[in-house]
């Protein structure tokens, strides 16, 4: 029984990591700029498509027809060779193999630029307008972004292979001295969890231990006073928006081997991430992270067959159910500060 529970716990971690990363970005934006950003899921999707784009570039190939050999269908054999491999040889093959993690390098600057231009170009003008209008305009932006991606990459999911030596599963049980092959966990999910833990840790350290982070935290607490002290807080907040976009984008890049991205992947995650943010407490960063993991794990437990036998269909609704209960019982969320959006 312990093994089963432990396995479900592990299974919840990777989804929980994705929720936590997106919710972290949402909360950063809400906590600094006070904007409810419905386009945040679209940033996740854009990140995922950075990985797709990068792989497309890497696998540009030359097609040569070899008239000597025949393919199994009796046609002249086509030899496809990626250009990268032709130029760099072995190193090129390694590049193609590790295209997903390497595309982080491409995704970070792209997402930073997208995030900052989004804030300067659009969201800046909505600080003083009601929350409903912020929701609506970012919702419209999300539609536009995902339709642009659909126009560029087509409506179908595009599978991204993970690096070859990270396929298969890790035998976590035997590491912990349990029987072998009882608790196995796919390597890439483990990587994803560790990656997101690192990103979350980095964001918290950045906020906690740098001067920039200190100013941002001060601005979150009292924006006006920080402004009066002669600090250009708007600029810092813009950068925070960029960082939130980068976090969402990186979450998207690394998630592509787990779920082939299509144009509405962002929206699917966004709806859940909003629920996560509300459960964790609007504006509370630790709350967002904790609630992300908690809901991911809960969802994984709810999809156990034993649980489903008692409550049919619970796996479909558990997250929303938790959100409804939390909102009614403790409106500021699990770790929310008193008085922040406690209406």
């Amino acid at each position: 029984m312990f093994e089963v529970i432990f396995l479900q716990f592990l299974n919840g971690l990777d989804k929980g990591s994705a929720y936590a990363l997106i919710a972290l970005g949402l909360t950063l934006v809400f906590g600094t700029l006070g904007v409810v950003n419905f386009a945040h899921g679209a940033l996740f999707m854009l990140g995922a498509f950075c990985a797709v784009l990068f792989r497309r570039i890497l696998t540009l190939e030359t097609v040569t027809i070899d008239p000597e050999k025949l393919s199994p269908w009796g046609q002249p054999l086509e030899i496809r060779e990626p250009l990268v491999q032709a130029w760099f040889g072995e190193f090129g093959a390694v590049l193609v193999n590790y295209s997903v993690p390497i595309s982080l390098l491409l995704a970070i600057p792209i997402m930073l630029v997208i995030g900052i231009s989004m804030e300067r170009g659009l969201i800046k003008h909505f600080y003083k307008r009601p929350h409903a209008e912020q929701i609506l305009v970012t919702f419209g932006l999300a539609i536009v972004l995902q339709e642009l991606i659909k126009a560029g990459f087509g409506p179908n999911p595009i599978p991204q292979p993970m690096p070859e030596n990270l396929r298969g599963a890790a035998d976590i049980g035997s590491w912990l001295g349990m029987q072998a092959n009882v608790i196995t966990y796919p390597w890439w999910r483990l990587v994803y969890f560790l990656f997101s833990a690192a990103v979350i840790g980095a964001v918290f350290c950045f906020l906690q231990f740098t001067t920039f982070g200190m100013v941002v935290r001060a601005g979150m607490a009292d924006r006006e006073t920080v402004g009066v002290l002669g600090i250009d807080i708007d600029r810092r907040f813009t950068i925070m928006f960029g960082i939130a976009a980068v976090v969402a984008g990186m979450a998207g890049v690394m998630y592509t081997p787990l779920l082939p991205p299509n144009y509405h992947i962002g929206m699917d995650f966004l709806v859940l991430s909003f629920v996560v943010v509300v459960v964790g407490g609007m504006g509370s960063l630790p709350g967002a992270v904790a609630a992300g993991f908690m809901l991911g794990i809960l969802q994984s437990f709810a999809s156990m067959t034993q649980v489903k036998a008692i409550f049919p269909g619970i796996d479909q609704i558990i997250i929303y159910l938790v959100a409804v209960v939390i909102l009614l019982v403790r409106p500021r969320g699990l770790l929310g500060r008193r008085g922040v959006m406690e209406a």
Partner: peptide
């Protein structure tokens, strides 16, 4: 406010 929007969204998704 936003909580109402999310509650109704949650019920509809359920």
């Amino acid at each position: 406010g936003i909580y109402f929007s999310i509650l109704t969204l949650a019920f509809a998704q359920m």
